[in-house]
Write a protein that binds this DNA or RNA. Structure first.
Lengths: 332, 332
DNA sequence: TAAAATAACATTATCGATAATGATTAATGA
DNA sequence: TCATTAATCATTATCGATAATGTTATTTTA
């Protein structure tokens, strides 16, 4: 039952050099109570024997695993894929490994993922909550494990989070449709009503309308509960209102409706102005001039990791709530 | 320095119930040497106290971390994103967590990632090698850590791997361009010459030409060393040969040239038949009728994990080399 | 010059769980 | 009936590294 592969341990180096295990440990960790000469001997022997630290043992003793968990709905989503990539890179740069969890926006899976991460005693968690239930976030808060929310936030809980400037982003998009394309009836393909970013973007949508004295028409606002995993054109074909412009919660949703129009050979494909969100064109080429709201995903990832590491090192650190600036990228 | 957060341990349950730590462990692991009555008592107390297993301690003792590493060039690439997603899901279903590493196809980063995974004593590794150098794969082989290659394989090393049926996939694509579109000069936007999949797809390309008695023209074959991270249209604008059809190593490369043509307002965008590879349309909507070579990424992921787990449980298990069947998906 | 501080390494305890054995009682069997 | 076996729980050792504390010789300081 027990695994038999035996690696070189501190004990082996101790026996080979005549020092004690503790001295080996201190030497390899470059502690100041070991002379440079001894360190040199020990380092050489360690290299010679091909020593590799067993971080599991280290973690058990220190309480730190140097591992963070990233819990998102779906890393196959280009947005989360890009974020996960930058998070992993920046975390690695700081000596942390990254465990990923896909939740499919399912609160049950969120809970299990959080529990799994806690069992693994990760040092911290980056979490993008579905916000369908409060149980996962409650669980996380009670765990005392450092965490930062990604892309979404809870009004009722004061937690660290990093989001894009959703209100302003949506405002920019809609303002552009009105100002540049003279749109009057802007279809808003929004995300799930549960998530804060969808709520905030609705605020931005309304603010832009208000600025131009366009009355808000609720029937122009549609929701897509399952951002991912939904088959293309799923609910999109049921849209029953007239409109002269589209603002989509994400580029993914924008692409979905564009694909649908193209497949159906609808004229809309080439005639209707449309603005998405996330600017995934930056991460992958798209053969369509999709205007979009851009924000730096790399910056977002770096800040997330920075905050998390700060909290890991000092659990009492002040709460940080960051909004990544948004800008419009218009394409023709 | 030492982390202070104290969780409930077996010891606490032992004290609360009067049994020994060992009995608690056996009870919670449902070993058969503990009576059902005692198990019930222990389980209840464990639940009551909110016990959560410390897998770090467990791992140190058993030698198993129930964690696998996935080392790929870039999970922001839709192909790897989808694969990573399915791998994580299926691994989780089997009780394994997934650590990811992005290598950017850089052998140095590959090495560091492998070493990092080994230090973490992951139970197994899924690795998509850049194949630029042999050092990473050698390191992996010598480590004795179970691993399976993803998407690529080495002729000189007999290892487990799971790839798409590259030769046949390329054949299908090119045969389709010739048969259906009557193409005679097919531009092949291939991947890096180092990787086996690019080499194999070149074989398929040639085989299809041969079948139709079309002479092979080497100047029609272009390579893109950096599949990811390359700015769109990077080298694509330098294409200097005439052609009447395109086969791309990946949908990503196909989309890159399509985007370039569209931006440049080139007629090619609408007139040239093009076939990609990976059928990423299945994972995200694309507003262009991109024909592609499809294979089940979910199946690929499941097989990868199955093989890996089998090797983890039995390091002497026979080597498995699997080709996932490919098929053409033509779109108009 | 005696006391205090420092340098450099050793001893011992510990993280939390589990493997390898032991011990006790009850049940079974020849 | 006495030895065996089974059932059930306890003791002890261990995974590999590191924290906490000791020890000894050498300097430094008052």
């Amino acid at each position: 039952m027990k695994k038999v592969i035996t690696r070189i341990t501190l004990k082996d180096i101790a026996q080979a050099t005549g020092f004690t295990v503790n001295t080996i440990s201190h030497a390899l960790n470059d502690k100041k109570d070991i002379s440079e000469a001894t360190k040199e001997i020990i380092r050489n022997k360690a290299y010679e024997l091909g020593y590799m630290k067993n971080t599991v043992a280290s973690s058990l003793r220190t309480g730190y695993t140097r591992t963070i968990a990233v819990i998102v709905s779906d890393i196959a989503n280009p947005l989360f894929g890009a974020l996960a990539k930058y998070i992993e890179k920046y975390a690695a740069l700081n000596g942390y490994n990254t465990i990923i969890f896909n939740t499919d926006e399912d609160p049950k899976v969120e809970e299990l993922s959080i529990l799994s991460a806690l069992e693994k005693t990760v040092d911290g968690i980056i979490f993008c909550p579905s916000q369908r239930l409060l149980k996962p976030i409650k669980l996380l808060r009670e765990s005392k494990c450092p965490f930062v929310l990604l892309g979404r936030h809870f009004k009722q809980y004061k937690t660290d989070y990093v989001i894009s400037d959703d209100i302003n982003g949506a405002f920019l998009a809609v303002d552009h449709l009105i100002t540049y394309y003279k749109c009057k009836e802007i279809l808003f393909l929004n995300g799930s009503k549960y998530i804060s970013s969808a709520q905030d973007r609705l605020l931005g949508y309304k603010a832009a309308l208000e600025k131009h004295n366009i009355p808000f028409n609720n029937s122009l606002v549609k929701q897509f509960d399952v951002i991912t995993n939904g088959r293309p054109g799923n609910q999109i074909k049921d849209i029953d209102v007239s409109f002269d412009g589209v603002f989509a919660f994400s580029d993914l949703i924008a692409l979905r409706i564009l694909s649908y129009w193209r497949e159906q050979k609808l004229d809309l494909f080439n005639s209707i102005p449309i603005v998405g969100y996330d600017n995934i064109e930056k991460d992958m080429p798209i053969p369509y001039p999709l205007s979009s709201i851009d924000y730096s995903k790399q910056h977002m990832a770096n800040i997330l990791v920075d905050i998390l590491i700060k909290k890991i090192k000092d659990p009492e650190a002040a709460i940080v709530q960051e909004k990544i600036p948004t800008r419009l990228v218009s394409r023709f």
